[in-house]
Amino acid sequence: MTLVLGIETSCDETSAAVLEGHGSAARVRSNIILSQDVHRVFGGVVPELASRAHLTAIVPVVGRALDEASVSLGDIDTIAVTHAPGLVGALLVGLCYAKALAFGAGKRIFGVHHMEGHLFATSLEHPDAVPPFTALLVSGGHTLLIDCPRWGHYHLLGATRDDAAGEAFDKVAKLLGLPYPGGRPIEQLAASGDPTRFRFPRPMLRRNQTRADADYYDVSFSGLKTAVLLAVRASPDMDADRAHLARAFQDALIETLAEKTARAAREFKRQRIVLGGGVACNRALTAAIVERVAALGAVVYAPSPRLATDNAAMIARAGLFHAGHDAAHSWNLNAYATLPIPGLAT
């Protein structure tokens, strides 16, 4: 049995988790995410926290993760910490704390790439969500289409040229007068929208596209956002049009992502599609992908909200993999705002 402490502070979330590994099987013993567990972390008295107050939160969050897993630092075998990509100042809080813990307690340390964590996240709930698979990672900050023949080996097929999928949801929600974050409000409203009332362009999606086209796998959502804006401005009655506009926006975004994902599964003959990131919670997206890959006999795996958003359990899981295959990082391990995923084939 291997016990891994995971730490994640790459952007908004302060998160820590304890993972129990048995060979390639893993069980989450605890997974503390500050924004969702603030009362459990601070007990009755919750301090007024600025966003990204990792420095204030890191010690109690890690402490809570160890407590809920009923382990002490001494029981931990390996510490896995996100070291890229993200805000360097935010990453450094988690990284320096992890290094200090590891140095003081004599533990091995592994720096984990945040996006590799997302690739592992779904396997924590679905044991079959393992390579070979096609992965679509869609969050507020990332939109990546990846082929994964085996853990540690990744082909980056496509990415967003401008706005991430989750960002498009948030900004269109703002344009429609819906709350932030915008994913769920748009999904709920779109369910009652008439799909034939409005139609927005499908960015970078053309019938005659071939693999030789540079945008065959890439996506772009900035123009879609502007199209929604102009439709909102042109609407004589937003109360009547809001649901239809939400539906048309969501349909355009989903069709693009579903088609590109299906293309990747076809090209690499994958039977498994793994989704990650907050937008993977959108049921209409999952349903559209299921429908498009049905002819290939492929199965689609989506994580629950807690593992879809940024969390340390997925970092611990990726760390568990590297602990079994690679040498530990040295104390020189640094934080990077940008860094390619390790094992990325060019």
């Binding site: 952007c11 990509p85 900050g141 990332h142 040229r161 706005d163 960002e167 900004k171």
Partner: peptide
């Protein structure tokens, strides 16, 4: 790409 989520 848009830095809205990552901030920088």
């Amino acid at each position: 790409t848009s830095p809205t989520f990552a901030l920088v």
